[in-house]
Design a protein around this nucleic acid. Structure first.
Lengths: 335, 335
DNA sequence: GTGAAAGCGCTAACAT
DNA sequence: ATGTTAGCGCTTTCAC
């Protein structure tokens, strides 16, 4: 019995021929070890949780796909958990899954739940943060260079002679949002007559619309808008369209993330590509390494470069504000 | 020990005061039963799998959300599995998860993998199909009235005087696709001079574009297009836009599913609403009932009514074909 | 009604 | 190098 166990797990202490005989018997009987029994004694289930704030945001399915693919190569199963940025949800999921024998967690939407998660898990090596940088410095993470990406994008808009630039931000508890805002602010400060307009949002499509309407109602609209992510940019595009403003002729528009949808000709949205797949794969690799090595070297911190993807929504020449504001019909899309 | 077990599971055979004493001890010691040990002996893990063909198709995240929410009310955890419509993936997932003690499966993308799944699971009461109707009649399902929805949509287009109507279909192994095609064909047959144009696709965004280009290249374009789902409609819209054709003025366009994105003003897409949330909730309810009741009444078969959502992409009057085909600039969106 | 004992399918420690 | 033994934390007979 224990010999079988040794063979199955490729333990060295087993004779050549014994191993062969056991292997023969195994696939003759169609024997499969029970992960449950194994989990009971070893405490390892090969289950990972991926925490995301909103699976309906196209960014997360893309991330989930890459995480899932990377994990399954090492025979791990990924459970996607929708936190909606609510700490209670994080707690519910993690408490439950921990009892189920969860091995590790990738948190792609660290927010106010960061401390709860860390205290629940106890061992910080069982967690990797991604997308949003954690505040704790005892834990590994893989994030994009959000600040740098925002700077690059903002400078591009400035180079197009935009001066009044609106930034539709995210919630202050999300580090990716604050870092992007920070980059925006820094880049704007480099140009004397640049006027930054800042709106608060919540990563949701509707937030984009709200911000646009508020600006335009106040007759103080920007000539270019940067949205905190591609979904919000979509909401902004909707609102602009509804008000008869054309992109990019009346208002330039850019997003952040680089979701596939943004590349669609219908949006043709300039955005900052996060290389989502790479980020997901790397997060998995780091986590699995930490789970395997008992050696406790410090946390791994990766900041991936972003890539500015120039598309039609910011194309063309300077914007002289206030933008032409013919009401009514046919809003034209990029190009 | 066994008494504790009885108390935890609300077993009747336990004295009033004993129960009280045990409860007291339980939350004094902070005792939590181990699902793993429980699974080892009972064979039940409260784990469900949700099989989907492509999590990046916005339809599935929406479905997953509703399934997940419904399941967690009964303390079940849902694992989302991306099959990409490949039987091998289904087998991999299900074999693995079964060993992990999977309790049940909701398959939202039944395809060529149907038989494999059923043979792997053995007990058909552990499976519920949704979205795509299965061929087996031994198993429960919840699907929309795809045929009826397609008929209603097609008739609407016909009532707008469209006669050449294109249908961008899905793969023949997907029952929802064939049922929709069937409805389309039936409705077209009701009108003598109606000319159905049929293209094959694969539920992906690109398929919409391919079909449009093929039709338009052949100079035989339809005046209205029905896409097999909202994603494909997006692809079609892209392609139409690229060719300088305006929706709905030059070509009317409609989708199927009712994903949130379709409601966006940027698309303003007429579509057939599947009531995704309701479908997901119902699938869970049926599955959990089957898992609980050992009584083996036959499979439950639910066909939910769809709802035609009229929006700007099919708005307005008759289309006289061939559509105006000015090349070049500014494609205008609906409204 | 309650406790004792066996055992779910493995792994780890120990003996051989 | 291999077999034996003792659990992992529960549920389930089976006595009492």
């Amino acid at each position: 019995m224990s010999t079988v166990s040794r063979v199955v797990r490729d333990h060295p202490d087993v004779g050549e021929q014994t191993r062969a005989r056991v292997h023969e018997a195994i696939d003759r009987l169609g024997y499969r070890p029970s992960p449950i029994a194994r989990a009971l004694v070893s405490g390892q289930t090969r289950l990972l949780a991926l925490l995301v704030s909103d699976i309906a945001n196209p960014f997360y399915p893309q991330l989930a796909k890459s995480v899932e693919q990377a994990a399954k190569r090492d025979d791990y199963t990924v459970i996607i958990c929708n936190t909606e940025d609510r700490t209670a949800e994080t707690r519910r999921y993690v408490e439950r899954l921990l009892r189920q024998g969860l091995d590790g967690v990738i948190h792609a939407s660290a927010a106010r739940d960061e401390k709860v998660l860390l205290s629940l898990i106890e061992d910080p090596r069982r967690v990797v943060f991604t997308n949003r940088r954690p505040t704790s410095d005892a834990v590994s993470y893989v994030v994009s260079d959000n600040r740098g990406g925002a700077i690059e994008l903002t400078r591009h808009l400035l180079s197009l002679e935009h001066r009044r630039i609106g930034f539709i931000g995210g919630p202050s508890f999300a580090r990716n949002a604050t870092e992007r805002l920070d980059g925006f602010t820094a880049a704007m400060a480099e140009v004397p007559d640049a006027v930054p307009l800042i709106a608060q949002g919540d990563f949701a499509v509707d937030d984009g619309g709200r911000a646009v309407h508020a600006w335009m109602d106040a007759m103080s609209g920007p000539s270019a808008i940067i949205a905190i992510n591609d979904s919000v940019a979509l909401g902004a595009l909707e609102a602009l369209t509804a008000r008869g403003l054309r992109v990019p002729r009346d208002v330039a528009l850019a997003g952040f993330d680089g979701v596939q949808l943004a590349a669609s000709r219908v949006f043709d949205l300039t955005t900052v590509d996060q290389h989502i797949d790479q980020m997901g794969r790397l997060a998995v690799r780091i986590l699995l390494r930490q789970l395997a090595d008992s050696a406790s070297d410090g946390p791994t911190r990766e900041v991936l470069p972003t890539e500015l993807l120039l598309r039609g929504s910011t194309e063309g020449a300077a914007a002289d504000w206030p933008a032409a504001r013919e009401a009514g019909a046919g809003a034209t899309l990029a190009r």
